[in-house]
């Protein structure tokens, strides 16, 4: 079965991203397909490579990047939400005249249409948030 996953909260403050990660892993382990993981609202903050959590804690961004690499996941950060919160890739940084970008490996920035498309493409859309 095809699952789309939506993450609406940032890392660490709220459990949403951790829950989404565990769910995604469990779905993959059962042989399901993950069509896309879409990060919206503060969820876009999962996609910055600049976080430095304590060594004895999990690194949520890295967890997603590694799971993404292992299973070829489409990790999409919403552009409208990302712009508000300062999550940029190289192109966006250039376009907006900013001096840096911070998108993490394996994530890409794209439009809200990708969320609707995930709903259309997937048999189930599962949302994690506050």
């Amino acid at each position: 079965m095809k699952f789309g996953v939506v993450v609406n909260e940032g890392p660490y403050t709220h459990q949403a991203s951790d829950s989404a990660y565990q769910f995604t892993k469990a779905a993959l382990a059962k042989g399901h397909e993950i069509t896309r993981v879409f990060f919206y609202h503060d969820g876009v903050n999962n996609g910055t490579r600049l976080t430095v959590p304590p060594q004895d804690d999990r690194n949520i961004q890295k967890n997603w990047t590694e799971l993404g690499k292992e299973h070829d996941l489409d990790l999409v950060v919403c552009i409208a939400a990302a712009q508000r919160r300062g999550i940029l890739d190289e192109n966006e940084a250039k376009r907006q005249g900013k001096d840096a970008d911070n998108i993490a490996e394996g994530f890409r920035i794209s439009g809200l249409g990708q969320l609707i498309e995930a709903g259309i493409m997937s048999d189930r859309l599962v949302t994690f948030g506050d």
Binding site: M1, F3, N8, Q22, F23, K25, A26, A27, A29, K30, H32, D123, R124, L125, V126, T127, F128, G129, D130
Partner: peptide, 20 residues
């Protein structure tokens, strides 16, 4: 249930509604 049971529940029902 475990996370695997969560996944199964999602497959057994036709849609998922998260009460956020």
């Amino acid at each position: 249930v475990g996370y695997d049971g969560f996944v199964d529940l999602a497959t057994e029902h036709s849609a998922v509604n998260s009460w956020l």
